[in-house]
């Protein structure tokens, strides 16, 4: 018996000879919020559908709350898995008002219980005033909250969110993702969010699984993904930075004799600006980021790096500025 809420083992999915998912493994604790992050078409939504039981052609084992909901021999139907899901298009029923949409999956409950639940959920998603509205009368954010309340109504063992914020405009998106996160945390709800937006993943999730070509390349906290990426893909996909050839970087390191692998990741925060430094680099490009400038710098040996510099250091393109290379630990990759 395991105390994990969700355990996914060796899940593979092949559709029409295309490998969509390959040997996916990860597990989640109760109340943990995970994120599946990856470029479009990487298989993240498919993985979500496999967990929900909506995609029945997969191989491998999934257990939820200690019960195997899927293995080689058994396949529990989606309605028996006790899984809640929120969809990208919200999937609200257009002919139901907010109340009826939320009540959809708990119709079988007793009347008082149902209404108590409904009121709780409406309060939770702050839609008490809109209880009699129809979906088309609501804004995108409100519709999304109705969808969330509907999915939470049946008290699922796990909540799956399939790009739930991608139809919203940026400002609303971050606001709503914070709201949703605090709602889920307040309920100690285990949840998986699928997104292609890493900032959303960083702010929303406790752990992030980065998927590429149907494989989870790393399942870790956002800090670890950023600072200890396990693959070149993750190094490039997560955060900003440049990959430089080890030979180019070598002269700048204190230990000149250290053997370096062929490629090294340098983050913008590894390069600090210091006017007093003897080491100079030329500004090739600059991007204003409000509090900071992001400079693209080039050293004499043509090595290019990024550097985040406080924005009162406003230098011109072509200027030579003093920098320090402060790499805590080297993240190296082979080609």
């Amino acid at each position: 018996m395991t105390n994990k809420t969700l355990q996914v083992e060796n899940i593979s999915l092949t559709l029409n000879k295309n490998v969509v998912l390959r040997d996916v493994n990860f597990s989640m604790e109760k109340g943990e919020i995970a994120c599946l992050l990856g470029p479009s078409g990487c298989g993240k939504t498919s993985l979500l559908r496999v967990i929900a039981g909506l995609e029945s052609r997969s191989q491998g084992m999934i257990s939820l709350d200690g019960n195997q909901i899927q293995n080689q021999a058994h396949f529990i139907a989606p309605e028996k898995r006790n899984i809640g899901m929120v969809f990208q298009d919200y999937a609200l029923f257009p002919h139901f008002d907010v109340e009826d949409n939320i009540l959809f999956s708990i119709e079988h409950l007793k009347k008082e219980k149902k209404h108590q639940k409904l009121n709780e959920l409406l309060a939770l998603v702050q839609l008490e005033k809109f209880r009699k509205c129809y979906p088309h009368q609501l804004s995108g954010g409100q519709q999304q909250r109705v969808a969330l309340a509907r999915a939470l109504a049946q008290e699922p063992a796990i909540l799956l969110l399939d790009e739930p914020f991608s139809n919203l405009d940026t400002e609303l998106r971050y606001q709503l993702s914070e709201d949703v996160r605090s709602i889920l945390k307040s309920l100690n709800m285990t949840a998986i969010l699928v997104t292609h937006d890493q900032n959303e993943a960083f702010s929303f999730a406790d752990k992030i699984g980065v998927i590429n070509n149907g494989v989870i390349e790393q399942f870790a906290t956002s800090y670890d993904l950023y600072h200890s990426p396990k693959s070149l893909f993750i190094a490039q996909f997560i955060g900003e930075g440049v990959i430089v050839k080890g030979d180019l970087l070598k002269p700048f390191l204190p230990d000149h004799n250290k053997t370096l692998l062929s490629l090294v990741l340098i983050r913008p925060d590894d390069i600090t600006h210091n006017d007093d430094s003897a080491l100079k680099a030329k500004i090739i490009k600059k991007t204003f980021r409000g509090s900071h400038f992001l400079y693209l710098l080039e050293f004499e040996n043509k090595m290019q790096v990024l550097s985040l510099v406080q924005s009162h250091h406003d230098h011109h393109i072509g200027d030579l500025i003093g920098v320090k290379i402060e790499i805590d630990h080297l993240i190296e990759f082979t080609l």
């Binding site: 559908r49 929900a52 039981g53 909506l54 139907a77 989606p78 309605e79 028996k80 898995r81 899984i83 809640g84 899901m85 969809f87 990208q88 298009d89 919200y90 999937a91 029923f93 257009p94 002919h95 959809f104 999956s105 119709e107 079988h108 509907r150 049946q154």
Partner: peptide, 24 residues
């Protein structure tokens, strides 16, 4: 997604048919 929502709900199939599919 509507079909998925119905698949995931514990409602009886005929109820989903009467309450969701038929009206739509």
């Amino acid at each position: 997604s509507h079909f998925s929502v119905m698949s995931l709900s514990k409602n009886k199939k005929y109820k989903n048919f009467l309450n969701i599919i038929l009206p739509l």
